[in-house]
Amino acid sequence: MDVGTLTQQLVNALTLGAIYALIALGYTMVYGIIELINFAHGDVFMVGSFVSLWLLADFFGLRGPINNPAELVGVLVVAFVFSMVVMGLVGVVIERFAYRPLRNAPRLAPLITAIGVSFILQNIIQIWRGPAQLNSPQLINVQAGFRVGSAEVHWISVFVIAIAVGLIIGLHLFISRTRMGRAMRSTALDREAAQLMGVDINTTIAVTFFIGSALAGAAGVVQGLYYGYTFFTIGFQGGLKAFTAAVLGGIGNTTGAALGGFTIGFIEVFASQAGYANWSEAIVFSILILVLVFRPTGLLGQPTAERG
């Protein structure tokens, strides 16, 4: 592999990993705080892609790239804010009605509810927009880019990576430096003690769902911009990969989820590069199994034995 191809594939891997990382964060945050594997999270990402499709194609009537930079930035800001807020609210509603009533039920009950919510979201979208693949307007010209040596780097990749990294850093600062972030961490560590220290755990869990779902909403916008299409089952595939990323990085750990997302991006891209494109998923999951055999808590996970 020459340097040009390597650079090219490095950028591809980072872009793919960025999308996985954005979705993985939602899985890991929710698991961290209520120990629920939120199977509906992949579908929140899917609905996010449709919300952004509706806004861009139906509401703004856009069909292709925007060449005026000011207009492009404006539309992108509106698209991200809209999709993130809408999906954040959807996440809060899901938690309120599907998970909160079952918070003290046996662990299996909310898991089954999550699968149910996943189907509900898929059916809603299928009825709304039909089962066919729909084209999303690719606002940033996917052909435009610049050359690094012999490699061609597209602006869209730079944009996707920048958005994801920005959101990941923002999330990290939010969790580590703010009142609500501390409330989230303390609730994850010891829900009862947090409550006895004055933390309203219902609000805290709702905020966690809002943020996790908003990040999935952002990933939904990115899906449309980068791939240019969406359909009602992409949540399953994307969600499964992102869930794997969260487990690989150490579920419950946000830095781990980001790392896991990029790791899976790299594995997939370089497996394809090596000529094993059809094997890429088998390779991803083999590596997951190996990691879990030797580090059951994932790459950055902490042993959880001391939790009561």
């Binding site: 009142r179 501390r182 409330a183 961490r185 303390s186 560590l189 010891d190 009862e192 003690a193 947090a194 220290m197 004055g198 933390v199 902490q302 001391e306 009561g308």
Partner: peptide
Amino acid sequence: NIRLFANMTATENVLVGMH
């Protein structure tokens, strides 16, 4: 049985108290 937030710093524990 002490129930501090084990993986948070001393300052952060107090800050949770100030929530």
